[in-house]
Design a protein around this nucleic acid. Sequence first.
RNA 1: GGGCACGUAGCUCAGUUGGUUAGAGCGCCUGCUUCACACGCAGGAGGUCCCCAGUUCGAGUCUGGGCGUGCCCACCA
Length: 891
Amino acid sequence: MQLAKAYEPSRIEPAWAERWVEQDLFRADSSSSKPVFSLVIPPPNVTGALHMGHMFESSQVDITMRWQRMRGRNVLWLPGTDHAGIATQMLVERHLAKQGIDRREIGREKFLQHVWAWKEEYGGRIVGQLKRVGASCDWTRERFTMDPGLSRAVRECFVRLYEQGLIYRGEYMVNWDPGTLTAISDLEVEYEEQQGHLWYLRYPVCGSADSEHVVVATTRPETMLGDTAVAVHPADPRFAHLHGEFVTLPLVGRRLPVICDEFVDPQFGTGIVKVTPAHDPNDFAAGQRHGLECVTVLDEEARINDRGGKYRGLDRYEARRRVVEDLTALGLVEKVEDYTNNVGRSQRSGLAVEPRVSTQWFVKTETLADAAIRAVESGRTRIVPGQWERNYFEWMRNIRDWCISRQLWWGHRIPAWYLEDGSFVVARSRQDAEAEAARRGQRITRRETDVLDTWFSSGLWPFSTMGWPDDTEDLRTFYPTSLLNTGFDILFFWVARMMMLGIAMTGEPPFAKVCIHGLVRDADKQKMSKTKGNVIDPILMTDRYGTDAVRFALVASAGQGSDVVLKEERIAGYRTFANKIWNAVRFVGMSLEKAGAEVWTPPDLAAFRPLPDERTGRVPLEDQWIFSRLSKVAAEASEHIEQFRYHEVAGVLYHFFWHEFCDWYIELKKLSFAEGSGLSNAWRNMLAATERSLRLLHPIMPFITEDLWQRLTENTAGRPSSIALSSYPVSISEDGDPKAERLVEILRSLVATARNLRAELKLPASEMLSATVHSEIPEVLQVARQCSGAVAGLARIRLAVGTGAPSGQASRHTADFDLAIELPEAHRAAMRKSLEKQLAKLVKVARSARTKLRNEQFVTKAPPRVVDSVRTSLADYESQVERIRAALSGL
RNA sequence: GGGCACGUAGCUCAGUUGGUUAGAGCGCCUGCUUCACACGCAGGAGGUCCCCAGUUCGAGUCUGGGCGUGCCCACCA
């Protein structure tokens, strides 16, 4: 086995990524009888490139998927992309604008051709990147939200909801984006505090002799052009005299009634509100209650329209300036105050959203939300971490109807056709619509031009991707899915909608579990975004440090559900871990070649047990120990994966491989081989332990483990074609081999104690020294006798079992033994210092233990095991103190 | 206004059911080119677990209050 000295991920990763895809390694089987584990990807936008958020998510999912596959599940990870209505349309518009093409000039059909062409050319990028980072998706089942099958599902769902009376069309106030010229949903509006002003305007009272006026406060003076009333609180005594009066709207001259309505807050401003039903949601509602006229003064691009008289054609902000100017000139501005208000901006265009009355399509959400709430309440779907359930409930219980129509071209066109008499039919196809029209004695005049909100089709994703509404094999096998792993940022946008639509269409909630993860942030905890320029490109990092290092850094940096603060140095840190793995396996391979051992062909990798030494007939201690550890670590890692504690998985495996497998197992093996044991079973054990470690690590570091595993098992007959298809190590027995673990623990403790003493006393590192160990514990004596070679090799001391108390030597006491090192004269002073330091520490802990034991209630109420352990510890501290004092006086 | 988190080593964070002397990675200090790895090895320093009160024999962990930070929802004309 020839390996480079340092691991270079970029040399092996792309080839493996390609091979995995070519071999269809991750293809799910809908006819298999194995238990199923299924998951649909949160489809990234076709416009997108892979960012750290995707990589974080796919790393977590990939760990679960690879693990489930290795433990024998029939795994489906269904990939795909979302057409992302507004985002894509904007992008392609910009793209075309560069070539001097305006979508309005070329028209809808031509424009859509361009979008499709664009999608064909660039839409595969993110999928390609997912393949590159090893996401073990079933690429044969890749879907796109505008595939014919999925589009059919969208129409079917729309028609069914309509037939159930859950979709309606009507004139309401919606959030209008003056940039993209479409309505958007409440969720697509982002609020932001902004420094503004509050203008106090005078409206003269009609028919008043002494130029009486009312003063209204407003942040948007330009909308006064559309005022159709002023309002006061009915119980506000200050304005009782105004009830039934009228005022004159300045600049326009309209007579406005004074209305009484409880929505007025007497505390705010002057307690009198101007009412503009066409341009404010509260005013719109008030307008409906009082039958006010709705005077729209802004057009769809938020410019003053024909109703705005001389301000016609002005942008809303320019109009504001001019209106204030003119009112000031008339002496109608009483005062202006600074005021901070919350401005809603369109998530897409970034422009301030304009409340606008228009005809839109809505989903009635109340009953859908009820069912979605019950699914989580009953535990049929569980959200982890659990605190997100409260957010989910909170939102679902206060849900408002969902505006689903968008005045865009790119998307699923609403399946509604208008008739001559102005009515409409909703149907699955034009044929159906025509038939219905004929039944009504009408003809179709046109089809609805609006498309659906992107989240409508993604709301069907878990089953539309599996062939719904047909009763397909995939649907029966893989739906409802086992898990959804997604970010909290789309809990409402997406998860909530899938829950509602999934239950409504299939009768079942689409997931058994929903695992919510955090966001990836930069080193300053800022959200990564292109505009801030603080994005760390995952592909760049992957090229630089390797996919395994990037995904390890991502999952290791975040506790369950919490955000990741990502630093490049951390990724670099895990590259060194990969390098460590590489070199450990390189060492195993090199040793094997040097020893000229026979080709290793164990019959069954999965069931391999450590083999006995051919001479002694006993399994070497280090092999007993490492297989016990492997077994326990497998159980721990599995438990953590099952509970979505990915950072724990990372921690457990990192520690095991580096600080147990490399630091102790390999070091012990080196020594035993140095002693001349070249027998094949010793090799087989080490190879098997290495191979098993690689399988343990595979879900979290797929590339390096695949590459090394392939080399290591090259000659193993009947092995699977990929480590991904091998089995995940299972625990041999509940507590492994406690005896072996105890012995190695003592060995490690002996070595560590010796090293520690040596370093503290500044004894030369390589010089062989003599030492005695005193203990009454049989295991310690056993280790001292049987592993003296190992101790000598690892700590450079010749160990003897001593009798009586050590004196005149450097000694240290632990819970299990005393270790005394033969000390050259010159080091006495250093030792005195060391002992005094130990003494101070011990006196402190002994005091606290004594206090505890003097406390009667502790002794009677605490569990016996706790009391006992404190008692034992105290006895131990006391004897230590005694010994140290003795040693000090002996110096 | 309503809701949800968070505050532990210099930094980023673990800490599952309250229980022996609170952990990791990075950084820092000391010593090692020991023939897998200097992307390494060995050792070490570093903590008022934000503050106050309470429950308890016992609190980083539970309760209440305070201070500080972040997020979500609703929305103020």
